[in-house]
Amino acid sequence: MEKRTTFSHKLLPYLLLAPQLFVVLVFFYWPAGQAVFQSFLLQDAFGLSTQFVWFENYAALMQDKTYFHAIWVTVVFSSLVTLFSLSIALLLAVQADKSLRGAGIYKTLLIWPYAVAPVVGGVLWLFMFQPSLGLLAGKLRAYGIDWNPYLNDTHAMLLVVMAAVWKQVSYNFLFFLAGLQAIPKSLIEAAAIDGAHPMKRFWSIIFPLLSPTAFYLLTVNVVYVFFDTFGIIHAVTGGGPAGATTTLVYKVYRDGTAGGDLGLSSAQSVILMGVVIALTAIQFRFIEKKVNY
């Protein structure tokens, strides 16, 4: 007979959950609550004088042209980064899944960038593409391209997109590779026997079976682009030129710390929080239905 240990205590599950709940409470609900409260205040940078102004900060945002510009920048930036980091990672994962010589080294090298902090990653890219010192920037100029991310919007955007994609490809690669390895070989072999060529096998068998992974990554990537790319933008362009790479989260930082306007900055982060919660909810509720699990 099987021996089973049962816990009859009612409190125990809560007790076991407590550390996790505590962490969530302290590191999420508390600061989030403070942000909501702060967004109704008008304060000087030092917090010495405080006025309660209700929704004035939100109203000010709605009249701020640069805020709408930041929304547009975020949409462009997140679409580009998500698209490229997912597709490049998928391509690399499919290649790594084949039985190759030295696949181990290849995989390890691809995973490395994930261990690099965003700021450091940003600085690495800056070393290559800084207009007067960068190695590759010099090459571009030699080919007659007037590379100048300090003044050219498109160049600045390209540079932060490249750095952000480079950083995220590793993560996506890992998940895609794991997803690929979980697909039963028998399915693919059966299709091969039926005469399906490799492209057909990929699109009609592998890709649909990979869609749960792809969907999960889509959510994670969007959240990544919204928040974690801050370090890259800060190190590479500082949000410039003229706000061309100022995403929503970077604007939160600029208005809050450099501007010393915590009320306005908090109002932005509350809106941003709402947007991300909504995006995640939509993704799980609607897109999930179309995904093959």
Binding site: A45, L151, N152, D153, G240, P241, A242, G243, R254, D255, A258, G259, G260, D261
Partner: peptide, 21 residues
């Protein structure tokens, strides 16, 4: 007051002029 933030704003606008926007 808030000249730190203001300088950022001014520089943004100068950048817009330098890029011809």
């Amino acid at each position: 007051g808030n000249l730190v933030q203001m300088r950022d704003v001014w520089a943004d606008e100068i950048e817009q002029a330098l890029t011809g926007k």
